[in-house]
Simulated scan of single mutants.
Amino acid sequence: MRRLSILAVSAFVVVAAACGSDTGTEDSATTTTRAPDAAQAEKFQTALDDVRDDFKFPGVVARVITADYEWTGSSGTAGQDSTEPPTASDHTRIGSITKTFTVTAVLQLMQDGKLSLDDPIGKYVPGLPNGDTATLRQLADMTSGIPSYTFDENFQNQLFGDPTKPWTPEQLLDIVRGAPPNFPPGEKWEYSNSNLIALGLVVEQVSGQSLGDYITGKIIEPLGMRETSFPDTAEIPSPHLEGITEQGQPEGQTTDPTNWDPSWAWAAGAMISTLDDLQIWAKAIGTGEGLYDQQTQDVRMSSFLYGLPPNTATAAYGLGLGDADGWLSHTGELPGFNTYFGYDKNTQDIILVAVNSDIPNAQNQNPAPAVVQKLQAALAGS
């Protein structure tokens, strides 16, 4: 049985040698209207086709935006049993990209003076390992030392035993309450979904709203992301991609997890969006426009932990966001789905990818990062 990669993949290690095309700093997300030339479009399409041939997933849809052009392409189908191609308007589960929304909510509340990033998590959420010493900042940048509930074997057995079961945030955190911390806060970097569940509870406590209502009212609606949602049911709006996964299945078998209940991922990975909406999100994250003031954007942009292993000098995680060779980015993985958004802070180029599979290839690489690397290489050669 294939066990867990759920929301456990390092969110920023999507590193290619290139940093994007040399197209200047014009706002590509809003000014681009024309397509690339045929040769460039063929490079992008070949990237999608080659990765799908390697991974054997049902389908992928991707978009590349520069100051000079916008390209959207797909390969394969919207689902294993579908004959339709995936499109940029298809809804998909975006997994850990949800983290970028949850931490954005925390930063908004910080800007409003309702919390401090230096507050210990125990001020809001009791009983966690390192609760008296790990700060909200350390939860958001993954240096808290709090273990991830998703690695708990009993949790995995329950999840895959009944993937339609709803979970509450407190049930998820109870899995790690009483456990020893993995390390003192700030000593190491380690991706933990428990961090984001706790931060989601902070947002609720401080704002007086449910996390879904806060994110919808303060982030999604102001940005005009009409097809993005924080679901409170297992349903995914149509049209949507149909996922395929090996997780929790007997060796060599797959299943369709599209309608599994996402509440187990909550503030760490439950959200739904489309490639069209993720284009809006990529620009908002890259610029801070529509989210918070420049001072708060500067706090986020100065938060990347370069050099703290496994971060490197050029690829690092910060406040709910990665920086990989200049690409401000996050991947998202949920059983059946693998998604990516990236915004090049130097050129304002954007890359978006949605794959309806989380099954790795023979080299144990996930599908969306593989597509991103190919697209970045094609972009660099343009």
Rank of each mutant, 00 (worst) to 15 (best):
D37Y: 08
D27Q: 02
A282V: 07
Q171F: 02
L159Q: 12
V206Y: 06
Q205K: 15
V9T: 15
Q45C: 03
G95T: 10
W189C: 03
P369W: 03
F160L: 01
T92V: 15
F57E: 04
W167I: 10
A18G: 14
Q80Y: 12
D68K: 15
N157V: 06
T30P: 07
G248Y: 04
N259F: 14
P369T: 11
P262K: 07
L375Y: 10
L128R: 01
V203K: 12
T100V: 00
A41N: 08
S192G: 04
G217C: 07
D344H: 13
D53P: 04
Q40P: 06
D358T: 08
I197T: 11
A8W: 04
Q111L: 03
L136D: 07
S192T: 03
A370H: 10
T72M: 09
L109N: 02
G76P: 00
A313T: 13
V103M: 03
Q80R: 15
K283L: 09
A67Q: 09
A67R: 06
G79K: 00
Q80V: 12
Q138H: 10
Q297F: 14
A88Y: 08
R93D: 04
T274G: 07
L109S: 04
A324D: 10
K345D: 05
I6K: 08
P85K: 05
Y214H: 00
A380N: 11
A62T: 09
K56T: 12
P231W: 00
V202K: 13
S116H: 03
S10D: 14
E221C: 01
A134I: 02
P184W: 05
D68A: 11
G24Q: 01
E235K: 12
F160D: 00
G212Q: 02
M301D: 14
L48M: 12
K99A: 05
T254Q: 14
N259E: 07
P360R: 10
G200F: 12
V61R: 07
L305R: 14
R3T: 14
K188A: 13
F151H: 08
S357W: 00
I65P: 10
P180S: 13
I219F: 06
V299Y: 07
D261A: 08
T254A: 08
T104M: 01
D68F: 00
P250Y: 02
V103D: 08
S21R: 11
T135M: 06
V355N: 02
L117H: 04
Q279H: 13
T98D: 03
T83P: 03
G286S: 08
A284G: 10
K188W: 05
D53H: 13
P163C: 05
T133H: 11
L278F: 05
G145N: 01
K374E: 15
V60L: 02
L173T: 03
